[in-house]
Design a protein around this nucleic acid. Structure first.
Lengths: 156, 156
DNA sequence: TATTGTTATACTCTATAACTATA
DNA sequence: TATAGTTATAGAGTATAACAATA
């Protein structure tokens, strides 16, 4: 049983490597990195955010966000604007170009997902998702050690 | 169907993030990074390798291997020695300390795998592995675009 | 006193290009 | 001429610490 779960984990890591590689390659063709795409993705889903909120959503330091937003701003994908009530804070918003990039990313993500699971039946897909979800729950809220905290709430 | 495969891919990426996070954390507690652990892992499985072979196995540039081996050598985990027949080449081998590190990594990997799949029945695990394997094959040798090359042969 | 974002500094992984020693 | 590994340089992501402006 130990051997079988080890090789299962190995295959799962292999799949993760291939999938993230495919995604990184697609992003690179658009001049994006994964970290920068994550910023765009968050802004696309949640609207303008403070840098502080971005650092929490991305689980990185505020210092890191400064550089990411700098790069995206230089590329014309986001803009910084003063927060309406808190003069310490900066609001980061998608530009029109940034919104277009988010839509393209969304479309390509969908195509990747469709091609990845193309050959699976509905029931196979459901079983697979069930195992993934169960594994995630066990890892995040399981009885043993808590490996990683859950996704932070960055709602305004 | 498109929506369902999209959310399936999202969940799979989430799982990949949690798993690699757990692994990186475990490695960091031993003063290792993922890239350095991969070097140790290759040497553990295949014995002493030339830096050239390591660069092919890790899919990175020879320049990158120089730094990785430098760091591991400084930590006392590997040694460089001249190649017996090719005076241009350098053989990288695990030290006793490096072998011990490899064994510990192997043990902790097994524990992680066991805890990840602990609640699954044999048949559930088999189904899951089947889906992962099928997806990998489709991505690597599928009819569409070839996303990533397969694992290189670095046998001596 | 606490928080937001910055400057300063550093580490890790990655890459290309030019170079030395050897094949 | 080609290969193995290095130096030199660069970019990207990450981190801690100290600091200014503001709450």
């Amino acid at each position: 049983m130990a051997l079988r779960s080890c090789s299962a984990l190995e295959r799962l890591f292999e799949l993760a490597v291939v999938l993230t590689g495919a995604m990184d390659q697609g992003l690179a063709e658009r001049g994006l990195t994964r970290a920068r795409a994550e910023v765009i993705w968050r802004l696309h889903r949640q609207g303008p955010l403070m840098q502080r909120q971005l650092s929490q959503a991305l689980r990185c330091t505020p210092r890191n966000v400064t550089d990411l937003v700098d790069a995206l701003e230089a590329a014309g994908l986001v803009t910084r604007s003063p927060h309406p009530t808190d003069r310490r804070a900066t609001l980061v918003s998608l530009t029109e170009q940034g919104k277009a990039a988010a839509s393209r990313i969304q479309g390509e993500y969908g195509k990747l997902a469709a091609s990845v699971f193309a050959d699976l039946s509905e029931s196979q897909l459901a079983t697979f998702v069930g195992v993934v979800n169960g594994t995630l729950q066990r890892l995040r809220r399981g009885p043993g050690q808590r490996l990683l905290p859950g996704d932070r709430d960055v709602s305004r």
